[in-house]
Write a protein that binds this DNA or RNA. Structure first.
Length: 427
RNA sequence: GGUGAGGUGGGUGAGUGGCUUAAACCACCAGUUUGCUAAACUGGCGUACUGUAACAGGUACCGAGGGUUCGAAUCCCUCCCUCACCGCCA
């Protein structure tokens, strides 16, 4: 949620920012929010005043009884009764006001960072960097990863479909070992870079899903276990960020840098077509994530740091990639600035998103009540960030396609010590 | 899943309807004193909302949510969590 005081102080800035998301009535929405907040304050003050009266009168009543003046006490009691009916009325009015306010705030997405380009969809995303050469594939007979998976018996989609359903791959043999090697390598690199590794729960409660913004908006994207009222995590961002929900951190504890491996579960309702072929889009996949909790002054430095980290991994894997700055229309609801990483799939001849690195500023921490204590002892909201080091399936897809040869699939040098083999062969 | 015991500030822990404005101790911060370290003493020490130019002031919060009462940490109801034992189990 955007902080109300920001909307009050920098309304023009907010309006201009939200316009980049294609929101044209932001000014009206903000006016409404501020009016509701004013009303809330007013009701609060009235209610507090009455409660103050009740407290004082109650004390008096106690004293009167003690000195044996029961009739005077009874007189006061009726007066307190009147206060209380009024308080009940104010409370009802406050409840509806706050409910409306909450709703209005939840429907307002984060204000994009000033560097975010305006635009409706991914065509307006800005390519900020491209690295590596895209091979001239016309002359080569490169095969897509789903064929390679099958030929070398690395990933079995049919088997997963039998066991669970479509989109739940079974990794087998060298395919499984490659998967495990990549996870281990990503984690090692993140730990070396200064992150603390955690293994979070893979299910979260509704409070956590609310804290990072999956609820109430993206309800349909998560798997839900009704019997226990729990959600399977769509990314480890959710449990890892929520580990700090409600905390007040000292300046000496910042920035907090964490990394976690987890499987990610996504319903992907409504996806179809060529996008979902092979490992392009699945319901369960592995990912190594980084979560950073930072002081507002350094959060954009941390964002750069995360971007550079992911960049270095892709370079070590020697995969061609590009970095996009998402435009307003493509930016996630809760993010202020997002860089997407895409690797080039040489057989599919298209870019695949493998990482998304975002700064949420105070949008999440406002819900999470995640704060720090500043030099003057005041509590203020922290900035939260997260980014995939990399999501596995599309990396595997890109690796298989790029490193295929007539004799087998080669393993990038950096991974060889992790896999324990240099080349994927048949049988 | 069953039975029992619990959940109070950063920590330990008192508190069974109004002298609680949550004691006391520890930790922490500031000051006083003192060759240094330390100790002693004094004061301060939660969060949120509201309010003020800034103070002050007000309200709420003792696991969560309801209820009883003029008044609830304290009584009642529901739920959550922790611990112990039992059952089941990797």
């Amino acid at each position: 949620m955007v902080e109300v005081h920001i909307l009050r102080q920098d309304k023009d800035l907010a309006v201009r920012g939200l316009l980049k998301r294609g929101i044209t009535d932001a000014s009206d929405q903000i006016d409404q929010i501020v009016a509701l907040d004013d009303r809330r304050k007013d009701l609060q003050t009235q209610k507090d005043e009455l409660l103050h009266q009740v407290n004082e009168k109650s004390r008096e009543i106690g004293n009167l009884y003690k000195s044996g003046r029961g009739s005077e006490a009874n007189l006061l009691k009726t007066q307190v009764g009147e206060y209380k009916t009024e308080i009940t009325r104010l409370e009802a009015s406050m409840d509806t006001t706050m409910e409306t306010l909450e709703k209005a705030l939840l429907s307002l997405p984060n204000i994009p960072h000033e560097s975010v380009p305006a635009g409706q969809d991914e065509t307006a995303n800005e390519v900020v960097d491209t690295h590596g050469t895209i091979p001239d594939t016309d002359s080569q007979d490169l095969r897509p990863h789903w064929e390679l998976m099958e030929e070398y018996d690395l990933v079995d989609l049919a088997m997963g479909a039998k066991v669970t359903g479509s989109g739940f791959p079974v990794y087998k043999g060298q395919g499984a070992r490659l998967q495990r090697a990549l996870i281990q390598y990503f984690l090692d690199r993140a730990v070396d870079a200064g992150c603390m590794e955690v293994i979070p729960p893979f299910m979260v409660n509704a409070d956590s899903a609310m804290g990072t913004g999956q609820l109430p908006d993206k309800d349909g994207q998560m798997y839900y276990v009704e019997k226990d009222d729990l959600y399977l995590i769509p990314t480890s961002e959710v449990p890892v960020t929520n580990m700090f929900r409600g905390d007040i951190l000292g300046l000496d504890q910042l920035p907090k840098r964490l990394t976690a491996y987890s499987p990610c579960f996504r319903r992907e309702a409504g996806s179809y077509g060529a996008d979902v072929k092979g490992l392009n889009r699945v319901h369960q996949f592995d990912k190594v994530e980084m979560v950073v909790i930072a002081h507002p002054h350094t959060s954009y430095d941390m964002l750069d740091w995360m971007v550079n980290h992911t960049r270095s991994i892709l370079e070590e894997l020697e995969l061609p990639y590009r970095i996009l700055r998402l435009c307003g229309g493509d930016l996630g609801f809760t993010a202020a600035l997002t860089y997407d990483f895409e690797v080039y799939s040489v057989a599919q001849k298209r870019w695949l998103e493998v990482s998304s690195v975002s700064n949420f500023e105070t949008y999440q921490s406002n819900r999470l009540k995640l704060r720090y204590r500043d030099e003057n002892g005041k509590t203020r909201l922290l900035h939260t960030l997260n980014g995939s080091v990399l999501a596995l399936p599309r990396i595997v897809a890109a690796l298989l396609e790029k490193y295929q040869t007539a004799d087998g699939i080669e393993i990038p040098d950096i991974l060889k010590t992790y896999t324990g083999f240099d080349c994927i062969k048949k049988g």
